[in-house]
Design a binder for these strands. Sequence first.
DNA 1: CGTGCCGATGCCCGTTCATGCCTGATTGTG
DNA 2: CACAATCAGGCATGAACGGGCATCGGCACG
Lengths: 253, 253
Amino acid sequence: MYAPERQQEILRLARDSGRVDVVSLAEEFQVTAETIRRDLKALDRAGLLRRVHGGAIPAGRLDFEPGLAERESTAADEKDRIAKAALAELPAEGTLILDAGSTVARMAAAIPPESSLTVVTHSLPIAARLADHPGIQLHLVGGRVRHRTHAAVDAWALRAYGEIRADVAVLAANGFSVEHGLTTPDLAEAAVKRAALTAARRVVLLADSSKYAQEHFARFGALDDVDLLITDNGLTPEDAGDLERAGTEVVRA
Amino acid sequence: MYAPERQQEILRLARDSGRVDVVSLAEEFQVTAETIRRDLKALDRAGLLRRVHGGAIPAGRLDFEPGLAERESTAADEKDRIAKAALAELPAEGTLILDAGSTVARMAAAIPPESSLTVVTHSLPIAARLADHPGIQLHLVGGRVRHRTHAAVDAWALRAYGEIRADVAVLAANGFSVEHGLTTPDLAEAAVKRAALTAARRVVLLADSSKYAQEHFARFGALDDVDLLITDNGLTPEDAGDLERAGTEVVRA
DNA sequence: CGTGCCGATGCCCGTTCATGCCTGATTGTG
DNA sequence: CACAATCAGGCATGAACGGGCATCGGCACG
């Protein structure tokens, strides 16, 4: 097995499980720990992994708190299905706004190489993922970067979204319901989401069913601002019916 | 069997099995390893295969950024020393502008955790690296993202730098000399560098000695715009003297 | 039919690369 | 505060590499 293959595999493992450790990798690949360390160092320098004592964690995580691995793995299946279903809703070409969020990030990572899109995002991990994509013209929205979500917020971000007009915005929300609309815990982030929502002709919301009927501190839109909701089949058909009556098309992936 | 036929077949084998190795191919086609290496090199240059030590892997199977990885390995030692020396020039607290560039990125990665800085950057890799640094308030400069350098450029970036004032800017250049000043191959990038330079009270340039006396297409400043140049000892003391007489302090790490 | 050119191939040899091993320093944990 | 795990750097080794040169074989042209 060649070094780059091994590194690629390490990267995959890291992204899948949220972290890797030197000793298990050495055993797994039948090489010494030194070699693994060299691999991790290379991946670290390339910015794909973050080296920590004893192992490494994937770079560009939405947050790196201990709770993350668990949160990531929670509903991972649903998120993947949602991301895949969302891909089908993307135009083959045109302009796209991508909100910050792990499901949106998964979708972004799966955009096929032959696409020809203009993408605007204020999410650092998504931008990092798409910067190499040959078919994508990427525009980064600046601003203060929130540690927790790695998303740009505040004046620069708001102004940037105020100056553009996109075909589709793919948004994420921490909570959604007919009564309380779209909510998220942070005010600054909500303001940016609202600006992104306003800048697009068509709004697609990606949210797994655990977000349904949740409400958080900051509201950034009403449900009927959303043209299409993509969620998983944890949402009951009755709830989906309620949402559709409120004017939002619902896809249960 | 003619060379193009053989290469075609090598490509097919590589795509089928995910990898090929020099020795087996040599045996398979009854030619020497040198010939296979030449074939692989040709396919690599054509972008169809990715060459690795001992063999090759079909292109697209790895998602490394070859350009970035390659630049990382060039003059890695010098760059590390320069980056380390540059750290000593950073204020303990205050506002910092970080330009795009591998040496600057290394410096950024080495900023101690106990620092308390406000950092502004238009470089995506650097931002990704600093986004979860607890002591750093990070501000991202938006704009169109260039594939080659992963840096934001154009109107949004220029305006953002026009609106701020920082204590120190850490810049990179592809070429520097007393006569031709600071140059880089891309016009858009040069404009952003100039804006960053203008926005800072003190300008530190990181450039290894191979950049000395180089000149590239786009000029973004004169040498005396630079307060401090940090380079390696590949720069002769005489050349350093010339630079100092031109008004720039020189550190040879 | 001969001849000279040129690309492809093979061979040689100094250099680089990937890996493993060792040692001393560093770090995290109990 | 001490112990065990982990890390970084230096060194050794065998495989792989790359450039220079010689050879071979086809092809065009006279």
